[in-house]
């Protein structure tokens, strides 16, 4: 049994110690907004915040979570910047198929919280681990710049 804090709520889950956080979120807690892409930390679709840091939940064993605060896409709009990111994603129609986008939004939110006016280079460094099969990268970049320029 492990007790973890997800989106401000404590949950006790019955899971083996090596079960990845991603599958605890999706199966045990039914938080299916976080997506499975590769299971090997290669694509970023499973990105959640662990104490504010974007983390690949597909490779983080539940036993490594401890007291850290997990935040997922389901709750990111409760943060000011998270909700700006989601709104701007809608305004600019950033998603195509959408599969990678919860990971993109988690990564973009963390970037903008850390850096209110990221350069293209800052965006590359922060976002290059989040792969989009649909190639929405130009719209992601545009949305991040728009938020930084107009709202931060």
């Amino acid at each position: 049994m492990f007790t973890i804090r997800v989106n401000g709520v404590e949950h006790t889950v019955d899971a083996s110690e090596d079960k990845p956080l991603l599958w605890v979120l999706r199966e045990n807690l039914k938080l299916t907004g976080t997506k499975y892409g590769c299971g090997q930390a290669l694509c970023g679709s499973c990105t959640v915040h662990v104490d504010g840091q974007p983390t690949r939940s597909c490779v983080m064993p539940i036993s490594a979570v401890g007291n850290k605060q997990i935040r997922t896409i389901e709750d990111i709009n409760t943060e000011h910047i998270g909700s700006l990111v989601q709104q701007t994603w809608q305004t600019l129609n950033v998603p195509q198929c959408g599969y990678c986008q919860s990971g993109q939004i988690m990564a973009a939110t963390a970037l903008l919280k850390n850096n209110a006016s990221p350069s293209d280079q800052d965006i590359d460094k922060a976002m290059s681990g989040n792969i989009c099969r649909c190639g929405t990268y130009p719209r992601i970049r545009k949305a991040i710049h728009k938020i930084a320029a107009e709202q931060l």
Partner: peptide, 29 residues
């Protein structure tokens, strides 16, 4: 290193793409 991983100021990666985003305390997956 794939994904354009960078060293960062403190050798732990970019401010919001840290080594620990993927690398755990043990080999995984």
């Amino acid at each position: 290193h794939a994904q354009l991983v960078v060293r960062g100021e403190d050798n732990h990666g970019a401010p919001t793409l840290q080594c620990s985003a993927c690398h755990q305390d043990e080999n995984v997956a």
